[in-house]
Write a protein that binds this DNA or RNA. Structure first.
Lengths: 237, 237
DNA sequence: GATGGTTGGCGCAAAGTTGTTACAAACTCT
DNA sequence: AGAGTTTGTAACAACTTTGCGCCAACCATC
């Protein structure tokens, strides 16, 4: 269990396109070690087809390739209806400033200069994915709190990529705490907002539901902290 | 799994154009084994005419042919009013980089490098067809949700390729859920949108219709999930 | 106005959820 | 350390929600 909460569970997929199979394998090795699902491709001409079939979350693309260079391929990817939103990480040979600028202009998300450090490769991969995931979440109205993702529309909660089955009350409780993340919520407050204003319910009932919620969230349940004498709060990490 | 469903039912037809009859037959054999309808053609000069008569869902085209090369033929197909939307899968001899790029530029949908693996041939054929079918569905206003295809115009619903007979209310119910796929719909919401705003109908009636709809959809009915205390939603998988 | 399919409502059984209680454990303060 | 308070949790009974079969009303078609 590393740092980036969002990645732990749901394996993200990366497509690596480089005309040198050896380099592909090397990159693949390091990404797989970090839990990514990968596919490699040494023939850039098959890129569009393979990418559409594999549906990657990220494409790592070598700029310098025979037959079809990375820039051109990038342009092709960016006009493909299914692939245009897939972020692209460019690999550029040494210092080719022009190439990089062109890459950004054509919609690349980041670049890495060969030869590169493996740690940096993984770090950048994660960074790009974190950005795009956050953007996607924000757009779709989902709420995120560390490894917890809550979707009000589909009424689903994912914890570390796994679907967790919550009852309506538990869902609303978590929803409220995620909206007010980090801030303590008194039992009365929770009763008013999660249950409806007609609060003739025992305040101890809240404890019970918090307990059940913690149970269903498993390890992650520890993110719901008890503030003795006051109430509960959801915290990150 | 996912894409396969689209194929089960109606047999798709493939036209194979290669100047070598042996290769034609080989390809034909493998595609037929997988349930495709096929036709072969060794004389590229007859291509347009044959293609118009056969009305294939896909054309497999050899790039290198005497008399009339594949690229030129591709261009001719792409300007033919009846054939311009038929996807094309190119067969290229090993190292012919330029040819392939030109092929993409002229509207080819994918490539396969000779010699190729039979499994890959079939896989790509299916992938291309899945793509074009989805595109066609989108254009024609049909809705798709996993194995369910709903056509608002003809008022028909296909499940895994089989026609399912739904009543008007059931149809509208499914229609709405497919439009709002993945999102929970409350009973009230359903009543307002499926029935007309005159909501003096018991909300329990919704349950009844959902039940009947589930029944008629058979196994696929499980895609309609109950979100206890909230409503119903249609999910994929 | 008969007919056959469709629709909305009712009622019951099954399944799932919830509030309460009771008691143990943890914490606070003297 | 011990009394007093607060919290965690298991158990359970009451309650709510849902699935399903049934029936009467409806409606278009013949």
């Amino acid at each position: 269990m590393t740092d980036a909460s969002t990645f732990e569970s749901s394996k993200h997929s990366v497509l690596i396109i480089d005309d040198e199979p050896d380099l592909c394998e090397l990159i693949e090795f390091h990404l797989q070690k970090d839990g990514f699902r990968t596919a490699t491709l040494s023939n850039p001409l098959e890129a569009i087809g393979t990418a559409r079939d594999f549906c990657p979350d990220l494409i790592i693309l070598d700029v310098m390739m025979p037959e079809l260079d990375g820039l051109r391929l990038c342009s092709m990817l960016k006009v493909d209806s299914k692939l245009k939103d897939v972020p692209i990480l460019f690999l550029t040979a040494k210092c080719e400033p022009d190439e990089r600028v062109k890459g950004f202009e054509r919609g690349a998300d980041d670049y890495l200069t060969k030869p590169f450090d493996n740690r940096e490769l993984v770090a950048r991969t994660k960074a790009i994915l974190a950005r795009t995931i956050k953007r996607k979440l924000a757009i779709s109205g989902k709420l995120e709190a560390g490894p917890i993702i809550l979707d009000p529309e589909s009424h689903e909660v994912m914890v570390s990529g796994k679907l967790v089955d919550l009852t309506h009350t538990e869902f609303r409780l978590l929803h409220l705490m995620m909206e007010r993340i980090g801030r303590v919520q008194s039992r009365e407050n929770l009763l008013v907002n999660v249950w409806n204003y007609d609060t003739d319910i025992e305040t101890r009932t809240v404890d019970n539901h918090v307990g059940r919620l913690r149970g269903k969230l498993g390890e992650v349940g520890d993110l719901i902290k008890t503030v003795r004498g006051v109430g509960y709060k959801l915290v990150l990490d």
